[in-house]
Design a protein around this nucleic acid. Structure first.
Lengths: 148, 148
DNA sequence: GTTTATGCAAATTCTTTGCAATACT
DNA sequence: AGTATTGCAAAGAATTTGCATAAAC
């Protein structure tokens, strides 16, 4: 299966018409294990208008092809769901936001923890973002300390 | 101890000069167990400029008088820390965002869970927001269903 | 009287929307 | 043709900043 066919299938699986713009956005979002923001996509895909990207992200969200993470950086970040994801609380995973390089990592093997809620609260979803230094930035900081 | 003296002391305890604007903002933030946004404060304190509120919140954050919660509503929310809070991961509590009434509740008795991070990640803080319906909105919804 | 805080206006950043033009089936 | 998609321009919302005035010590 070619790359193109793979992404086309992925869109159709979620009942999204595979247009050129949507394929480009999905391809871009699939590179790497990091969540990307609308401004990120705007930067990497200058041929597309931000309104197109915005509407595409809304569509992807609606069809549960991607999930959104609020990492507190000011811009929402988005990442492609795994194929079997239904976006229920049980499907959600932990994200890590690096306060140094501002990247947000998907820690797909770490499910979000669920604390028992008081009476009356009805849980729909969870935003669980750990913040700190990613391995690279943590390493750089230690190197700097060793040298000084 | 009067109200005024209580808030003045609270500011001074965090080494913040107790000006009129700061006292009003702190008083407003102390009402209720909900986190408030900058636009919320702007609405409740029309006598203060939003730039003043913005700068005051930054100052409060810096001095760890308040903590910020990103509930995904578009506006950051802020809530007064408990007196013994040092804003470490162990001090952080769970927040609940109601998708219906858009209020954010501090669940102070529920510490944020901490999942074990992969090698190399250095944890600084956690944003843990549960989303769904609060007791009131959940109740209203059920009432509506019973009637129809 | 010098430092600090505040208000006003404007800028910035992220995101969405109306509408006309284009592409698809 | 008729519907869906896209680009452009503009609007909207939250937040911040420069600068002049006002308040505090």
């Amino acid at each position: 299966m070619t790359d193109e066919a793979y992404f086309t299938h992925k869109l159709e699986h979620r009942e999204i018409r595979p247009t050129a713009a949507r394929l480009q956005i999905l391809r871009e979002m699939t590179r790497g294990d990091e969540a990307v923001s609308l401004p990120d996509l705007e930067h990497y895909l200058p041929q597309l208008d931000k309104s197109t990207i915005s509407r595409t992200l809304s569509l992807f969200l609606l069809h549960r092809l991607i999930h959104a993470v609020d990492d507190g950086s000011g811009a929402l970040k988005y990442a492609v769901c795994s194929d079997d994801c239904d976006c229920t609380v049980e499907d959600e995973h932990t994200h890590f936001y690096c306060t140094e390089c501002h990247r947000t990592f998907c820690l797909k093997h770490l499910h979000v923890p669920v604390v028992p809620l008081p009476e009356g609260f009805q849980l729909e979803s969870i935003n669980y973002v750990l913040k700190g230094l990613c391995p690279q930035c943590s390493e750089k900081q230690q190197t700097r300390h060793r040298k000084t």
